[in-house]
């Protein structure tokens, strides 16, 4: 078919978290520009399986850009060259025939490689378990307008809540810091009345867990915000800093 591309992939291969790992080079032919980046990997893996070789392990789930599973570091940027897009929504029309594409896993001590391009992001789950929730009695949902919330606050909370926890912020950050993720998860509740009861405890516990996981500290480079597929704002980090310092100075529990 005309318009199809021949590309060279340099892909990180690593058997398990203890393996040293290395790059393998794979030429891929007749790639349609309408394929997604992951579909191109499907084509490569089909070929590897037919050749009796081990397919490349990579995370994926919804392939609609909303689940946060895909996680490739493509040509030096998480989720590839486009802004506001996850790897599954990156299409091969963003590349040119003859390109060499380097694909690496997220790199962070808190995200150990499970295999090839798949990394263990359960550190994020443990941060959420530390306080990224509100405690409510189960039962019928409350009437929608029983608690008045200013529109601006609701919008900012919703914008923070669009974080899909993919980890691109950690991958992009030169310090492997998780501040953008944690601050989004803190902010989505800090902005709403329902989040107030546990507001101080939440930020203290989530930051403590973030530090315990071995993420780096924030030096405000802004790389996370620029690479976030959901456009989570750096202002969330400022809010978390404010809340954290405020909570340390004023929390009731000594």
């Amino acid at each position: 078919m005309s318009g199809n591309m021949n590309l060279t992939l340099k892909v990180w291969r690593q058997k398990n978290k203890d393996d040293r790992g290395k790059f393998e080079t794979y030429p891929v032919q007749h790639i349609s520009p309408d394929m997604s980046f992951l579909e191109m990997f499907d084509v490569l893996n089909e070929r590897l399986i037919n050749e009796g070789k081990d397919p490349v392990a990579f995370d994926h789930d919804c392939r609609e850009g909303i689940c946060g599973m895909c996680s490739m570091f493509i040509n030096g940027r998480p989720h590839g060259p486009l802004q506001g897009v996850t790897t599954c929504q990156l299409h091969m029309r963003s590349f040119k025939n003859g390109d060499t594409i380097v694909v690496e896993p997220w790199r962070a001590s808190a995200f150990p490689v499970i295999k090839d391009l798949a990394v263990d992001r359960s550190a994020f789950d443990r941060i959420i378990s530390a306080g990224g929730f509100i405690s409510v009695n189960t039962g019928n949902a409350q009437d929608a307008n029983s608690i008045p919330i200013p529109k601006d606050d609701a919008d900012a909370a919703f914008a923070a809540a669009t974080c899909i926890g993919c980890g691109a912020c950690v991958a992009a950050c030169k310090n492997a810091s998780a501040m953008l993720f944690v601050s989004a998860k803190v902010s989505q509740f800090a902005l709403l009345p329902q989040g107030q009861a546990e507001r101080q405890e939440r930020v203290l516990n989530m930051v403590a867990q973030m530090d315990a996981e071995g993420f780096g500290s924030c030096t405000n480079t802004g790389a996370c915000e620029a690479e976030c597929p959901k456009g989570i704002s750096l202002s969330n980090i400022a809010r978390m800093n404010r809340d954290y310092i405020g909570a340390q100075l004023s929390v009731q529990k000594a």
């Binding site: 340099k10 790059f23 570091f73 040509n75 030096g76 940027r77 380097v102 690496e104 790199r107 962070a108 001590s109 808190a110 030169k174 310090n175 492997a176 810091s177 071995g214 993420f215 780096g216 500290s217 030096t219």
Partner: peptide
């Protein structure tokens, strides 16, 4: 912060 990424990237843009 350097220790938070013990294995670096081959390509960083």
């Amino acid at each position: 912060n350097m220790k938070a990424r013990p294995v670096g990237y081959a390509v960083v843009n």
